[in-house]
Structures are given as structure tokens and as C-alpha cells.
């Protein structure tokens, strides 16, 4: 199942935190940065493209 928006945001927050940590090695930081940017793109796509769906629960 694809990642939900909430999971993406949580991962993004974690990436930011590790990027802020001075002990994170440089090459890992670069990789984290790339992942972060990709993730933001996915979040933005989700917010702009996905639409509201309307359903109804009928009488049981």
C-alpha cells in the first residue's frame, strides 16, 4: 500500500532532524537531502492532485 500522507510527513520530519544533527556524516547528509526533496515533491503532488471522494453508508 503506498505511503500515506501522514507517513510521508513523519519521514520528512525525521530527515530534517537528522540533517540538523551535526554528527550525521556528509555523504549520508547528501543522500538524506535528496530523499527529503523527493519526498516533498510527492507530498505536494498528493496535495495538489488527489481529490475529495464522496461515499455513502446505506441503511443496514
Amino acid at each position: 500500500m503506498t505511503e500515506t500522507y501522514e507517513e510521508m510527513v513523519t519521514r520528512l520530519r525525521d530527515i530534517t532532524r537528522r540533517l540538523e544533527d551535526p554528527d550525521t556524516p556528509l555523504d549520508e547528509s547528501v543522500r538524506l537531502y535528496k530523499d527529503g526533496i523527493e519526498l516533498i515533491k510527492k507530498c505536494e503532488d498528493y496535495l495538489t492532485q488527489a481529490e475529495l471522494r464522496i461515499l455513502e453508508i446505506a441503511e443496514e
Binding site: 520528512l12 530534517t16 540533517l19 540538523e20 507530498c43 505536494e44
Partner: peptide, 19 residues
């Protein structure tokens, strides 16, 4: 949320550039 994402993107860029 979209505005926040834009801010995060520039924050990440600053972080990596600083690094």
C-alpha cells in the same frame, strides 16, 4: 501545508549548503 513544504525545501537546502 503546501507553504510549509516550500519552507521545508529551502530549510533543507540551507542545511545541506551550510554543511
Amino acid at each position: 501545508l503546501l507553504r510549509e513544504h516550500t519552507e521545508t525545501r529551502s530549510a533543507l537546502q540551507n542545511l545541506i549548503l551550510d554543511r
